[in-house]
């Protein structure tokens, strides 16, 4: 919980807890589902950070010889073995290694893009809420224009025009999702700007910047943090979908969405054949996005229904 009281640093803020309108002290208690989900997310973040260092092979390494050093006739879609724990993909590359390398690409791109969306969205959203008037009107209409596109369509059109590169993907997802962050930040900002404590701060003669940094942002922080999780899921799905369509991360860089796409033909061999090659990265995406969703669900269930209404 963020500190919502306005005290100068030398006053012990705990004296305010006795006041009848002191903010309730809530400690985040996760259900067991929530705890498992946190573990899953932590696991993938760990893999994203150290994956390339601990992976058995390089992401672009083709397995050509078996462990004894004899050449393999057909290294594509090999079944799991001690040499390749999850088998190999359509070109004979180790799937486990590619998933570990791909974690960095998929999670890294999505995370940076979501951060970008938040920096743009919150700045513009709070600015619109605080300034009001035509600033608000102009920013809101711009956002309406972005939101009148299906996200994937905007992605397709921009990629058709500019081609696909990692910075392009980050910028694209960042701008698209900034529009929805803007709406939430603006709604929260407008709610907060009419609260008594903001009026009190104004009456005290506090400057605009003080009000934004000490009143608006801390009070909007918790709902925005929860929303960050949901937005991250959307961005992961968006980037993976583009990669899956062959329009996102380009080879030889491994990425979960493009791994599913490239190994699709392995599906036809069934579970006893190469089905693991597209299945494993798909499961990686699903486990990550479901886990984040469950954590968000857990937190918003505790924070009460008021959150859910703002996060549409």
């Amino acid at each position: 919980m963020t500190d919502t009281t306005n005290t100068s640093p030398d006053v012990d803020s705990s004296i305010y807890d006795e006041l009848p309108d002191a903010p309730p002290k809530t400690r985040l208690r996760l259900s067991w589902v929530g705890k498992i989900s946190v573990a899953v997310v932590a696991f993938w973040v760990f893999i994203a950070i150290v994956g390339p260092y601990i992976a058995p092979y390089h992401e672009a390494f083709f397995i050509e010889d078996d462990l004894a050093g004899n050449p393999i006739d057909d290294p594509s879609f090999m079944l799991p073995s001690s040499q390749a724990w999850l088998g190999t993909d359509y070109l004979g590359r180790d799937i486990l290694s590619r998933i570990m390398w791909g974690a960095r690409t998929t999670i890294g791109i999505s995370f940076i893009a979501t951060l970008l969306a938040y920096s743009i969205g919150i700045t513009m959203g709070i600015a619109a809420a605080v300034a009001g008037g035509w600033t608000d009107a102009a920013l809101s209409r711009m956002v309406d224009a972005v939101l009148s596109f299906p996200n994937i369509m905007l992605g397709l059109i921009v990629i058709a025009a500019f081609g696909s590169s990692i910075p392009m993907l980050i910028l694209l997802a960042g701008v698209i999702y900034a529009a929805s962050v803007f709406r939430i930040a603006r709604a929260l900002g407008q709610d907060i700007m009419v609260q008594d404590y903001v009026e009190a701060a104004r009456a005290r003669g506090e400057g605009l910047w003080w009000i934004i940094s000490k009143e608006v942002l801390p009070n909007a922080a918790m709902p925005l943090a929860t929303d960050f999780g949901l937005r991250l899921v959307f961005v992961i799905l968006f980037i993976s979908t583009l990669s899956f369509l062959g329009l996102g991360v380009q080879p030889p860089i491994s990425d979960w969405g493009s791994m599913v796409r490239a190994n699709l033909q392995g599906l036809g061999n069934g579970l006893g054949g190469g089905a693991l090659a597209p299945l494993a990265p798909a499961l990686a995406i699903a486990s990550l996005t479901i886990a984040i969703n469950l954590i968000v669900d857990d937190i918003s269930a505790q924070a009460g229904g008021s959150l859910a209404g703002k996060m549409s």
Binding site: V233, G270, P278, L279, T289, N293, L294
Partner: peptide, 22 residues
């Protein structure tokens, strides 16, 4: 909730694998 959280192609490849291939 689970279905909303996963990519569309995830649902598709599961259906292909079980209903069409297996």
């Amino acid at each position: 909730l689970g279905l909303i959280a996963v990519p569309d192609f995830f649902v598709a490849i599961f259906l292909i694998l079980f209903l069409a291939v297996q």
